[in-house]
């Protein structure tokens, strides 16, 4: 049962991934194939983002301030918000080691998957644009975007 709850997100992602895969291999329309690739790609983003999540964590935007301007306000904020200021990616287990200095540590989810996926999204739109341009070109040349009709024409020529 704990297995089910702990791995549930991965299974959803795999389901989405396989739906995209199915569209890619079962459909003969070129645009539909690209749509399938997009769905596959998005599911990979979701897989990475899911792995970066830490239970009880929050988005990796630091609350404590090291800049000069708000440094004065820090002690005041620490009093009123129950010393909610350190930066820790680790969860409680490792946070305890540092807790001699700071009473409560903030837990942040992992920023690295987010960074990687930001890059991947932008590269993904580049490949999609290229693929769609190829589809337009194929349509000009063959008059159809159905894969089997294109192959038929190639065989007959």
């Amino acid at each position: 049962m704990t297995d089910f709850l702990g791995l549930y997100n991965y299974w959803i992602v795999i389901f989405l991934m396989m739906t995209g895969f199915y569209i890619v291999i079962a459909r003969e329309n070129l645009i539909k194939t690209i749509i399938g690739l997009n769905i596959f790609q998005t599911s990979v983003f979701l897989l990475y983002i899911t792995m970066g999540k830490v239970t009880g964590g929050t988005a990796p935007i630091l609350k404590g301030s090291h800049s000069g301007e708000s440094h004065g306000a820090e002690s005041h904020g620490a009093e009123s918000h129950g010393a909610e200021h350190g930066q820790e990616l680790h969860a409680a287990a490792e946070g305890h080691l540092d807790s001699g200095v700071e009473a409560v540590t903030e837990i942040y989810s992992n920023p690295i998957p987010s960074v990687l996926m930001l890059t991947a999204i932008v590269v993904g739109i580049a490949t999609t644009a290229l693929a769609l341009a190829l589809v337009v070109r194929i349509r000009e040349e063959y008059g159809t975007i159905e894969e089997d009709e294109i192959l038929e024409m190639d065989r007959n020529s």
Partner: peptide, 13 residues
Amino acid sequence: DMPHFGDPNAPIQ
């Protein structure tokens, strides 16, 4: 074999 969702001790963290 994957670490569970939200596990703070997963290798990625």
